[in-house]
Amino acid sequence: MAAKRTVDAAATHGLALYREMLRVRRFEEKCAELYSAAKIRGFLHLYIGEEAVAVGVMQALRPEDAIVATYREHGHALARGVAMGPLMAEMYGKVTGCSRGRGGSMHVFDAAARLVGGNAIVGGGLPLAVGMALADKLRGLDRVTACFFGEGAVAEGEFHESMNLAALWDLPVLFCCENNLYAMGTALGRSESEIDLCLKASSYEVPAWPVDGMDVVAVEDAARRAVTTVLGGGGPIFLELRTYRFRPHSMYDPELYREKAEVEEWKLRDPIPALAARLREGGALPDAVAEAMETEIAKEIEDAVAFAEASDWESVDELERFVYAEEAAP
């Protein structure tokens, strides 16, 4: 794909990728701040360090494709085009939030973006994604369901059952395993007898590709190839996106299980400065442009916070709405 583009187009696209990752990073930093200020409550899982994964994969998806994600999904929502205002309002629990404020940080849903959560049960999204893909296949719709999950989910039965079903029935699922090496405090090597995740997926006859998840261009390339294959009727594909979370698992984690030096080493591979350096080399990111971008993003975040602050709480009278459907299903 990249070869077909003109140099200018490639630079423009590179800038867009950079901008998107930066938006996610700054949004997450703001969330951490708002958590300290007790504006955001409950559990908060930040995506800082992993931005290249969601941003890269989203490039390959079309509006009609669907996404299933985890509790660490703010980046996916933003990269998918969920507006920052409703996303921030969801963090606050306001009625203008994309899930009416009922889900909070872990349960971002957006039907228009075809984002089906925000699932906080590890592994819980995989069977759902398989079913979404089954429906597309039965309905003859040429669509992909991208399912994001951490490497911790690979230990759950639901992972194995879903791999098998998707392969057995040739379903259009793009499995995106975000391997950040730790499931809370448990390192991959302490929870898996076989740490080669691609081997596991391959054992179900699901083609599996390891990808440098700190390189947004590599992620995008792999995702584009994968989506093309899946849409061509090739059945599911498994991407192991090798990445790292720079922050604690959630806001409660004392991080007793990893060395500071390891975190610092991974930070040297931070996907955002890495792309910035490449863009600068090609002259595509002059300082003025970078600064303008920061200013725009800061303004977008400021507006989102203002929107969330100004929004109403859902009325308590509405509490029992949507336990059952109010209208026929679409």
């Binding site: 404020g101 889900g103 349960h107 709480w313 509490l319 029992e320 336990v323």
Partner: peptide, 16 residues
């Protein structure tokens, strides 16, 4: 508890 899945915002959780 009210017959709902527990919602995130404090006022709704308290009400539930």
């Amino acid at each position: 508890t009210r017959e709902v899945p527990i919602p995130y915002p404090k006022h709704l959780e308290d009400a539930a």
